[in-house]
Design a protein around this nucleic acid. Structure first.
Length: 1010
RNA sequence: GGGCGAGUGGCGGAACGGUUUACGCGUUGGUCUCAAAAACCAAUGGGAGCAAUCCCGUGUGGGUUCGAAUCCCACCUCGCCCACCA
């Protein structure tokens, strides 16, 4: 051993700490550079040999950036909530916070022993109440924006962890953490609506510099697919024998398909076993069979259901639907190859052009109709030209997709639809070691009014507020907390437009409370409402089967027999007041138009005029099987309107006031989840029972905690201002430091942490809490370090390498350099303890060079130095650390061969070495009389002239085969080089004829073609 | 089954249209030593030859090119991610 690494490591680590030179500067004039690595989970196992790979890599980048004059933020902290610690606490009966504190001490000692240039003054810990206060605060922003909601839903339940898991945490049907069995269970869960951001999470990928494979993986995970939603009506059957057409009209099955062009080939339908319609549509004589099937498939694990190779199973319901394009009666089946979680939970099966449908149809002998022309046997999934598709024959798949979707929309039988694989984020954990969700539930507040909104309802010609759906709509809206106003219009049997308008204006002006205003109008009242929308600023306008367009003579012709002359006049009177669609677009926040599919008054012509007039600014809702409602058709309520109105009454969940944050974790005796699956917090009565911040009455705290993705979704923001107790970070500081310039982490976090974090930041951005919409400007990924046997390192395999031992034996710099030299940064590489020795030899050699420092420096050494500056600089930027190290080794070998180097030359080399081996580099710098830190020196710039070779080896080929090499001076002309090449004896030997062509590549080769 | 990536000495890997194997490990020989370790020097893809030199070599088979590890096509193997996504 040439140098005492323990002495040198301690000395420099101590000096760096004392001096604080790695602290990021506040209000600096320098260009900022925020460089981030994923903060570790401080497990009991200590630092894994893989951790230092990315920490050293970005340490090199951070150190180089500092030497280039940048103000660098390179922080470190602890992502410490979660199951490993909790499970350990349960096993040993210790407190999770004590275990965490201990683990952090170990991790921190280990990281410090590597001489990483973290700004330790900004250390954070997600389990620190001062930190999770802000995690809770941010969760409340989601809650207050309506993006956090509690819903009873089937969740993945890990039987051994006794906790719910996000879809993303289930790997091949097993728990990602413990590998245990996962089953479906219904539980009330807090959800966060990440799907609302799905499109932006895809689109904004174009604005950031992530590795292409990371972008692709995120895109695929979000899984946007465009297609159509198609409505299939049920065929009249025993269900309708009571003659209740209303029920039938409601019962239709909506499916999502990416291949609407194959609709003519849809020969049967399949519902997922969990589909809510299954129980409703099953025919009496199929009940037993269907029930048994549904029951058996609910017991299947995801693995069993997810096996595509497995034989298809399913049962017939006895019911039929109508294919909307050709009126064919098609059977409805239940089968578990259709998943409730994707699309609508129901499919139209096109056996000729879908492999799964084909397998199913073959097994159950269902008809197969080919609708895309092509060669080869069925099923064929490729696109082509339509056949057997009626009027659409001959169109290509692409054309037909557009055409048929338009046709479906026109006919009210479907619409364009977009579907995502991404689901909303299950945010609840029934566990102790996580941030408590800062909400309380108050029975007293449940149902209380939360805000004021006015709704005015206007009926149509010959209608009244007693008829149609008005009474039920009013009751529903009142229940939801709206102020509802409705009046019988004057002369409803013979309405006069101006009279109605004046009446409506007077009623609105004299009754409205000043709260946001909504107008709902039906038929002629719809026309009236549209005209009112030109006059009032509305939050929302709802038009139910509105007249008021400008129909043609032909339109009126149809009614000549049914309308009297007087009635005709009335209709015309209204039509003479055309709607100003642009004014509506300007005045109304949200326009919704409801059309009945079988409305004899509201024809295609009228619908189109509304569609064109309002365009994309309005949403159009097609109601299945409903006619016009203006003549007291006996319709008692209309779900389509009611579902547009959210409740203004509290559901009883109340946010803990900001002043009461954080909601701290209480002490508990035992950390196991309870048998009911509730969090252990549920048994701490003192903690659970609390006072409602709104009404002062009794309330109960939410006992679920957050997933550990919560704290890690925003930690990069906290590093910017880690000690702020007024806000999660100061807005000015956020402006100074965001976004993170370079973020490196593992590929395994691409679809979990990275996606959540981007979403979280986008939400904060939308609410004005952070200045940029994308948190990370650049994202790269490191490869895994495998054990020497090529397997993953794990305690159970007994192949774990301990970094402490290596630092102890060889020193920090040796380990750092080996981590970089081991292989291409992004690829998985096996560890080799044998290889480490070579790095130590290299550093020993560097140490001996100090004694070879002299006045004289050979041209060769100078040239090698500049080549090294060039290569190391560019290699660091492109993360090719292995070749950067190799180049430095080559350089040291050259110096050895040449017998010495000048002092400035050696100092320049030490500057290059410093990011890789900072202890050795600083020590040598000091021993040679350098003052202060090498880190304060400037990053060297290479000189192209000095780096250029003076003599070049030129390969000489005949017909592409190497026959000789010649050495020429740099700058020798082509003619001379060729002549020299030709003069070579061994070249001449192979030149049986005159060359027909001579290839000359300057500085590289000459090739004689004969 | 799909997507992505990768196959180069004994090993980790360089090279990514121009002299295959930089750099490191290992191995062999040598120097030093009573000896060993360490260090240093030299050699190190296979085959033929005293030698100059030649032939064969980047998973396999084709193709493009004056020239292919590198580009294209097909196949094989391995790794990672996803997996009945309609």
């Amino acid at each position: 051993m040439k140098y005492d690494h323990k002495l040198i490591d301690n000395k420099w680590q101590g000096r760096w700490e004392e001096s604080g030179i790695f602290h990021a500067e506040e209000n600096s004039k320098k260009e900022k550079f925020y460089c981030l690595v994923e903060f570790p989970y401080p497990s009991g196992a200590g630092l894994h040999i893989g951790h230092p790979r990315s920490y050293t890599a970005l340490d090199i980048i951070a150190r180089k950036a500092r030497m280039e004059g940048k103000n660098v933020l390179y922080p470190m902290g602890w992502d410490a909530f979660g199951l490993p610690t909790e499970n350990y606490a349960i096993k040993t009966g210790r407190k999770p916070e004590d275990v965490t504190a201990e683990n952090i001490i170990t991790f921190k000692r280990q990281l410090k022993s590597l001489g990483l240039s973290f700004d330790w003054s900004r250390e954070i810990n997600t389990t620190d109440p001062a930190y999770y206060k802000w995690t809770q605060w941010q969760f409340l922003q989601f809650f207050k924006a309506g993006l956090a909601y509690k819903d009873k839903m089937a969740i993945n339940w890990c039987m051994s962890c006794k906790t719910g898991l996000a879809n993303e945490e289930v790997v091949d049907g097993a728990c990602e953490r413990c590998g245990g069995e996962v089953e479906k269970r219904n539980k009330e869960q807090w959800m966060i609506a990440i799907t609302k951001y799905a499109d932006r999470l895809i689109e904004d990928l174009d604005t950031i510099d992530y590795l292409p494979k990371i972008k692709k993986q995120q895109k695929d995970w979000i899984g946007r697919s465009e297609g159509a939603e198609v409505i299939f009506k049920l065929v009249d059957s025993t269900l309708s024998k009571g003659g209740d057409r209303e029920v039938l009209a409601r019962d239709s099955i909506s499916v999502f398909t990416t291949r609407p062009d194959t609709l003519f080939g849809a020969t049967y339908m399949v519902l997922a076993p969990e589909h809510p319609l299954v129980s409703k549509i099953v025919e009496e004589d199929h009940k037993v069979e269907v029930d048994a099937y549904v029951k058996s498939s609910s017991k299947k694990t995801e693995i069993e259901r997810g096996d595509a190779q497995k034989e298809k199973t399913g049962v017939f319901t006895g019911s039929y639907a109508v294919n909307p394009v050709n009126g064919e009666k098609i059977p409805i089946w239940v089968a578990d190859y259709v998943l409730m979680g994707y699309g609508t939970g129901a499919i139209m099966a096109v056996p000729a052009h879908d492999e799964r449908d084909f397998a199913f149809a073959t097994k159950f002998d269902l008809p197969i109709v080919e609708v895309v022309a092509g060669e080869g046997s069925l099923p064929r999934t490729e696109e082509g030209t339509a056949i057997n598709s009626g009027e659409f024959d001959g169109l290509t798949t692409t054309e037909l997709k557009v055409k048929i979707t338009e046709w479906l929309a026109q006919e009210g039988k479907g619409k364009i639809a977009v579907n995502f694989k991404l689901r909303d984020w299950v945010f609840s954990r029934q566990r102790y070691w996580g941030e408590p969700i800062p909400l309380v539930h108050c029975k007293n507040c449940e149902g209380a009014q939360t805000e004021q909104k006015d709704v005015f309802l206007f009926h149509g010609w010959d209608g009244s507020t007693e008829g149609d759906f008005f009474p039920s709509l009013k009751a529903d809206l009142k229940k939801k907390g709206y102020n509802v106003f409705m009046f019988n219009a004057p002369n409803a049997e013979e309405p006069v437009f101006e009279e109605w308008l004046a009446f409506a204006r007077e009623k609105i002006d004299s009754n409205r409370t000043g709260a946001p205003l909504t107008i709902v109008g039906h038929s002629m009242g719809g026309h009236l409402s549209a005209k009112l929308a030109e006059l009032y600023e509305l939050e929302r306008l709802v038009l139910v089967a509105p007249v008021g367009a400008q129909p043609s003579e032909k339109y009126f012709d149809q009614y000549k027999d049914t309308l009297t002359e007087d009635e005709f006049k009335i209709y015309k009177d209204f039509q003479d007041h055309p709607i100003d669609f642009d004014a509506i677009k300007k005045n109304v926040g949200d326009v919704r138009v409801i059309f009945g599919m079988e409305d004899k008054w509201i024809t295609d012509e009228i619908r189109d005029q509304y569609r064109v007039g309002l365009g994309d600014s309005a949403q159009f809702v097609e109601i299945n099987g409903r006619g016009h409602l203006s003549t007291n058709a006996g319709v008692t309520h209309l779900e389509a309107i009611e579902s547009m109105f959210d409740s203004l009454k509290s559901n009883g969940w109340v946010a803990v006031p900001d002043s009461d944050l954080p909601v701290k974790l209480p002490d508990v005796e035992r950390y196991e989840p309870t048998d009911t699956g509730e969090s252990p917090l549920a048994v701490i009565k003192d903690w659970v029972n609390t006072i409602c911040p709104t009404c002062g009455g009794h309330a109960r705290r939410e006992t679920d905690t957050m997933p550990n993705w919560a704290g890690s979704s925003w930690y990069f923001l906290r590093y910017i201002d880690p000690h702020n107790d007024k806000a999660f970070a100061d807005p000015e500081k956020l402006k100074e430091w965001t976004p993170v310039d370079w973020y490196n982490g593992g590929m395994e976090h691409t679809t979990l942490h990275l996606l959540y974090s981007r979403f979280w930041n986008k939400f904060l951005y939308d609410r004005g809490h952070v200045p940029v919409s994308e948190p990370y400007a650049k994202r790269t990924s490191h490869g895994l370090i495998l054990a020497e046997d090529g397997e993953k390192m794990s305690k159970s395999r007994g192949n774990v390498v301990n970094p402490d031992e290596l630092v102890e034996k060889f020193g920090a710099d040796t380990l750092r350099i080996y981590e970089m030299f081991i292989g291409p940064f992004a690829e998985a590489v096996p560890w080799s303890t044998n290889g480490v020795i070579g790095m130590r030899r290299f550093l020993d050699k560097v140490m001996t060079i100090k004694d070879a420092v002299q006045e004289f420096e050979s041209e060769k050494v100078t040239r090698a130095l500049h080549q090294t500056i060039k290569k190391v600089t560019t290699d660091i930027e492109s993360m090719r650390f292995n070749t950067a190290v190799a180049q430095m080794m080559t350089f040291v070998n050259v110096v050895g061969d040449e017998g010495g180097i000048s002092k400035p030359g050696f100092e320049t080399f030490l500057t290059l070495l410093c990011p890789f081996a900072p202890h050795v580099a600083n020590e040598l710098y000091e021993q040679m009389g350098g003052v202060g830190f090498l880190e304060a020196c400037e990053w060297p710039i290479f000189n192209e002239d000095l780096a250029a070779e003076k003599e070049l080896n030129i390969a000489v080929q005949v017909n592409g085969k190497l026959r000789s090499t010649i050495v020429v001076k740099a700058g020798t002309g082509e003619d001379e080089v060729v002549a020299l090449a030709r003069a070579e004896e061994n070249v001449d030997k192979f030149m049986v004829t005159e060359p027909s062509k001579i290839i000359y590549v300057p500085g590289k080769l000459v090739n004689f073609v004969i």
